[in-house]
Design a binder for these strands. Structure first.
Lengths: 155, 155
DNA sequence: TGCATTTCTAGAGTTATTCTAATTTAGCCT
DNA sequence: AGGCTAAATTAGAATAACTCTAGAAATGCA
């Protein structure tokens, strides 16, 4: 028997990018959320998490990138995988204007600049924004997240 | 761009079929931004602005509502009109998850609750949120707006 | 009223995404 | 290793939300 089902740990695949066995933890992490570490999912995970820096991708851009890197992955699988990774907490889904869905490899608390001209998103670390006061969630609900988008334009 | 601004004419044929001056303000605002007060635009303006309370509509929902109210307006016109109203500053465009574009009749500074279950948006008056610290916009840019979406879920 | 221009509309086109149903693969069990 | 079953992948069809087009209608100035 090859694989140990370890207990869940609350770290991201990012932590692993310097290690010698880059897929070992990815495989474990996928197993934790009952995603089989298939060729396609591992190829996409490599593209998404191995660069070391945070990324904003769409299904389309990731698909292209996968093609270029030689991985044969269908667009449908890219969509499926992005959603599965998101459900698994490996990615965060961001939706801003323009009808495109972006996925952010930065899953830590943070916010975004949105360029109104190009639609480009840039990360803002959480500590650079201070929210002093928030309203209470309505009855029977709780706040799951606070998303702040700072729209920037020319001048 | 065209135009003119001779003296505003105070009446269109539509007005006579309605109350005394329900459209006067809308007509003036439309004229200010060079949008002719057509039957369709006035019908939509009435639906959007006459209720007194702030609304979040999509092209689809507003189109349905217009149909029900007896106004014959095509979906294409609803889209055009919503964008024209937005450009004119009468509406604010909001984009959250789910790939639908919402238009908000509340154009004052404010934020939103987003129900993760239903996708429903609710206004939060600006004074209920205090942002103590913001990062600077990148070089040559300025902050045009800060959008805060407080995502709420069950419990 | 007549005319130039703007606006409206049905339907076709586009884009991003999801679904479907057939094929392939992974992981388990001898 | 070989076989089985459920899960995953895929191409292509389907859908949703817009956007475009080009002809018809309405608007407003003279």
């Amino acid at each position: 028997m090859t694989v140990m089902h370890t207990r869940p740990r609350a770290f991201s695949m990012m932590e692993n990018t310097m290690n010698e066995r880059p897929f070992a933890q990815a495989i474990n992490r996928l197993r934790e959320v009952d995603l089989r570490p298939t060729r396609q999912r591992l190829a996409l995970a490599k593209l998404l998490f191995e660069g070391g820096c945070d990324r904003h991708v769409t299904a389309e851009t990731l698909h292209e990138e996968a093609q270029r890197s030689g991985a044969r992955v269908s667009l449908a699988t890219v969509y499926n995988t992005l959603h599965q990774f998101t459900d698994a907490g490996l990615l965060r889904e961001i939706m801003v204007d323009s009808g495109k869905t972006y996925f952010d490899t930065n899953i830590h608390d943070h916010h975004h600049f949105l360029c109104e001209r190009s639609g480009e998103l840039t990360d803002i670390p959480a500590h650079m924004v201070t929210v002093a006061e928030l309203p209470q969630a309505p009855d029977g609900r709780r706040i799951s997240r606070v998303d702040i988008v700072i729209r920037i334009c020319d001048q």
